[in-house]
Each structure stands twice: as C-alpha cells, then as structure tokens.
Design a protein around this nucleic acid. Structure first.
Lengths: 221, 221
DNA sequence: AACGCTTGTTGACAGTGTCTACATTTTGGT
DNA sequence: ACCAAAATGTAGACACTGTCAACAAGCGTT
C-alpha cells in the first residue's frame, strides 16, 4: 500500500524472527513468517539480508551477544551475593556461575539458542556471527585463566580447558532442550545435573556456587 | 513405468535417506530426494511412513541401534587389547572407551547423528525411536553401575551420573561437528579434548584408556 | 527540475510435503 | 481356481517455501 521507507525495518525483522521462533519453534521459522510478523511484504527482508541464512546468522550473532550479557549479569549477581556475606568468589566458582548463566540463557530463549548452533540454517561464514561467537569463547577463556592463576590445572592449555567446559554445559543444555532427561529425572533436574557435572569437573567446592537457591542463605534471619 | 510391489522398499528408503544425508547434509534431506535416490516416485515413501518426520524417526532409531553396536564393538576391542597384556579394564576405563565410541559414531556418520537429535525434523513420539534411545541410555547406565560397584561415586544416583557423562561426550560431539573447535586447536583435537574431559570427570586413570593409539603399546617389542 | 539510490511491493519460478484419484500387484478366503 | 480386498506404486494437484526480476515511491544531491 505505502511503499515508503520504514525507519528501522532491519531491527524489526530481527525482533520478528525471535518472536516467530519463540512462538512456533524452528519449523515455523520461515522468511515469509518473519516478514508477516514484521508487517512487511515477503520480499522486503531480502533488501536487508542477502538470504534467510544471513538473517538467521544475524539473529545468532545477536544471540551470542545476549549470551555474553546474560553470563555477565549472572557473574555480577553472584559477586554481589558473595559480597553481602563479606566473601569473594573463587575463580572456579565463577566458572560454575557462568555455566548456570549458559543454561539459563538456553532455557529462557530456546529458539534463539537452537538457531545459534544450527549449521544448516545459518550462514556460518557471516563475519558478525563468527566475531560474536569468538567473543563468547574469549569470555570463558578469561574465566579459565583466572582459575588457573589460582592453581586449578595450571599446567593445561587454557583454550583446551575452555573447550571442554563449554562442551560440558552445552551438552547439558542441548540434551535438556531435546527432552532427553525427562525419563530419568523429575522437574528442574537440569540444575541438579549441572551441579553434579560441576562437582565432577571442578571439584566439590565449585558445585554449590552456581545456583542461588542452594548457595545463598544470607537472606534467612 | 511398472507400478509393481518392490520387495524391500522400506529398507531401501532408509538406506537412501542415509545416503542422501551423507552426501548433501541436512539441507538436502528431503522426501523427494530420498525417493529419487531409492528409485521410486515422490509419493511412494508415504505408503511406508505416514510422514517425512516418521521416516526420519526410523532413521534415527536405526542410528541409536547402530550407536549401541559401535560402542559395544569399541568395548570388545579394548577388552581384547587389555587381555593381550594380561590385564582387565577398570569399569571407569570402560566408560572412557564408550565415550570414544560415541565420538567415533558421530564422526563416521555425522548426518545420521545430527538427524537423531533434531527435534524439529523427526517424530520424537515414534515408539521405535524412544525405545532405541532408551536402550542406548541403559547401555551407559550399566557401565556406570559397574563403575559404582568398583567404588566410583557409589553414593550418587546412577542415572544422574549417566546423564552427566552423556552430556559431556554429546557436547564434545555436537560442538566438534559444528566446527566450534577449529579455531582453538589443530587437527584431530577432538580426541585430545575427550581425553582432557575424561581426566576432569573420571580422574587421571581413566583418560588414557579411551584412545587405542595412546594407550596400546603392546605391539612394540 | 532531473537524476540515482535506497527501500518496499508484486508476481513469477522451481522446489517442497502431503493429499487424492487411479492403476497394478499381491494376498487371503472360499 | 477365482474373486474381492488389501497393499503398493504412480501421477497430478494444492498450499507453502526461498529467491529473483520488474516496478513504484520516497529521498538527497547536483
């Protein structure tokens, strides 16, 4: 009707994509559905992205950035909780908190999380996607290096340790979203499994720091 | 041309599906491509499966069965290698070998492995899929229980430990196939990362048993 | 005023999953 | 042996998809 220049169609398309995948899942995440949700014609998205894969790569890059922010927020909150008790977090405990943030992100936005790791859907050569993914990995490497400075496996390569720790939480997130843990354990079992995973990988000390509900008893009188 | 009843169209469709996904990946895995590869018309598959999702669920169920067989083969081979040196494998070492088999399956058939865990592609309510998946999980639980009988975390729930160990190798497999480890480490790094993961989760003793190349030096004089 | 660039719409095209109508083969009961 | 019924395969249609080409409207620059 009015083929005028909308001010921020690109951003609205990304938002629409997140809404669509949140509402209808990956099978409903089509270019035309995104366009409908954004209120534009089915050809409009291709003026801002060369293909659907490029649009989804932008969604994924944004997802990585959001993941980094989520983990930072979890770290800040845990640090504040510790400071309220006149304590500081050990570096391995910060790794545990980061893992909890990773799982929280996957649970709160399962669609975006799935898109971010779907090689056949996104353009994995997208520059922003690779950059944000690398930034997320660097966030973890920094945490690992801090733990190594406190003596935790100081003789190993930091990037290798980061890869393994990433794989551990990623496996928990993926299998949980797939529904693989439904038969074996009850509701909210993901946090328990994460705790167990942390005790195996980081030692008993780190496991209890990840989940606020089990570690924070400062508010009780 | 000849609308006659082929003898084993169902099995040929499953084989064709595996061929297609091996050749063209998940984006080329369409119902019509499977039919073409199997040499039947595009409507024939729906005579044997109610939908594409059901066909792929059968592929996935078959994949689970093949995964169990692969892990069994790895366990047998490792047991034989140990017997040649007049030794027996510890139960935690058998868990490590099973993990190596899991990664081997994912690497040797990445398409089928991906299909098996793609919730939006397969009919996850399929009875055979659920049964074979449960069988695969039971295989791991049995290994865990044997390790617990030898004292390894005997106080924890076996199914929870199995979930965590499964998540650890699954995360390694998924991220490796995604290409997430390409920037950080060189070729064949997956086995090294698995070794490191095992040392973190199972202790230093178990790590060296997984990979034949690093553990088997019985052939040297 | 005239031009070019950007942004958006519209219609087309090949390809997809699934359905229906039809043809053929196989099977089972009598 | 025969005939009906079920099973199996084909061909065409439908709605839907991603992508492309042609066209129109608004905008800034000269």
């Amino acid at each position: 009707m009015t083929p005028a220049a909308r001010p921020d169609t690109r951003a609205r398309l990304l938002g629409a994509a997140r809404e669509v995948v949140a509402a209808d899942g990956l099978e409903g995440l089509t270019l035309r559905a995104i366009a409908r949700r954004a209120g534009v014609s089915h050809g409009a998205p291709l003026r801002h992205f060369p293909s659907l894969a490029a649009l989804l790569a932008a969604v994924a890059a944004d997802g990585f950035a959001r993941l980094v922010a989520t983990i930072d927020a979890h770290l800040d909150a845990a640090e504040r909780r510790a400071a309220a008790r006149d304590r500081r977090l050990l570096a391995v405990q910060r790794i545990a908190v980061a893992g909890a943030g990773y799982l929280d992100f996957a649970r709160s936005d399962p669609g975006v999380f799935a898109v971010t790791f779907r090689r056949e859907l996104i353009d994995i050569s997208d520059a922003a996607y690779r950059e944000q993914g690398y930034r997320s990995f660097r966030q973890l490497v920094t945490l690992v290096e801090a733990a190594q400075a406190e003596g935790w496996h100081a003789d190993r390569r930091a990037d290798a340790l980061a890869c393994v720790l990433w794989a551990h939480v990623h496996g928990l997130a993926v299998l949980s979203l797939h529904g693989a843990f439904e038969g074996a354990a009850g509701d909210g079992a993901l946090d328990d499994l994460h705790q167990l995973s942390l005790e195996l990988s980081l030692g008993p000390a780190a496991g209890s720091a990840a989940n606020p509900r089990t570690s924070d008893n400062s508010s009780s009188p």
